[in-house]
Design a protein around this nucleic acid. Sequence first.
RNA 1: GGAGGGGUGGCCGAGCGGUCAAUGGCACCAGACUGUAAAUCUGGCGGGUUCGCCCUACGAAGGUUCAAAUCCUUCCCCCUCCA
Length: 379
Amino acid sequence: MTLPQFQFELLATHGRARRGRLVTAHGVVDTPAFMPVGTAATVKAMFPDTVAATGAQMILANTYHLMLRPGAERIAAFGGVRAFMRWDGPILTDSGGYQVMSLAKLRKIDGGGVTFQSHIDGSRHFLSPERSIEIQHLLDATITMAFDECTPFPAEKVAVAESMRLSMGWAERSKTAYRARPGYGLFGIVQGGIHADLRAESAAALQRIGFDGYAVGGLAVGEGQDLMFATLEHTVPHLPDARPRYLMGVGKPMDIVGAVQRGIDMFDCVLPTRSGRTAQAFTRFGPLNLRNAKHADDPRPLDETVPCPASRNYSRAYLHHLIRSEEILGLMLLSWHNVAFYQHLMEQLRDAIAAHQLEVFAKAFAADQAAGEGDADEP
RNA sequence: GGAGGGGUGGCCGAGCGGUCAAUGGCACCAGACUGUAAAUCUGGCGGGUUCGCCCUACGAAGGUUCAAAUCCUUCCCCCUCCA
């Protein structure tokens, strides 16, 4: 019996948007897809079964965090992160490249790689392209990400170019270190900030190396939606049509809609789960802050358009009470709802592309988001 | 009845002559969150304002002082111990 090859099938296109299907050793992923983030081998405050029930087909885990705790070799002894956390579907691991930026105060870069000082206990850990790939193998990641530096914004163009070229060198070393297996994939990451020439150079460099998919990194780091969309417009045309395109770390609902319209197939973002833990609920009619006093007597559910118990079965008044009381269930229900909201959005986008109704859907969705505060029905 | 301690902004609790509209914490009112150092972080929180200040406030009423939440007197209330 042979495992299915890692492949990407294009089922339909509409403008630049694509409706596709990723076939992996661990399952199928319909695209455009949103992957909930499970950094520490857990989509925070959610059961794996619940995550799957929202429609999520693939999730993320993180090389850096799992390297520190509990350790990649320990997870390998349990058969990889999927078995360890009991997530049956495919999993994508970030390489630690984001932490090169987010933990800038706790690391030093040299040509060989990055030395981190653990944010947990101060101990030193070295991450190179070779070690990052090795860890991702130990984690048994379905999709392995090349080790990169997520370039911060704003930055001088010279520094952006230098950072991008460092990442391209690391991409080549990542490819060399990677062990290809049927149904598994390795993605390269385009860098270059908001500069069209640097993005083009990066996309070309990655394709010379050759990857199973191409990610766009270094966006949603403070440049704003207009610049992010502009960057996608000049970057995506440099990526091969036959390979999946993954916009890393994005984003808010309208970021995702706009990026799908610009040809992106895959997303991940901490927002649905983090916001769920900080009292924000995304809804068809815009975000709600469930801490706010105005919800105290509101009998309406969060969002009846979302097919999820957390979205439909609990009053805003109850959720407000749980959040105010710092009850764990409040975090769980909001996280569950938000992940379900994102999955429902992706399903609607997939349907709209297949039906060639993407512009219509995007326009209606944008109007509802702007309508405001999830209170469109409010008297 | 005697001895001692105490009453401060919604609550707890610092301050103990001027730099006090009064530290902190909680509660409350908002905001932020984008490949997760996040069940986190930030701001506001007596009233008015032409944003310079003005008014009202530290149990009550008097008093001392240029100046009082801070010192004195009387009163009211609370707590502890002894009878």
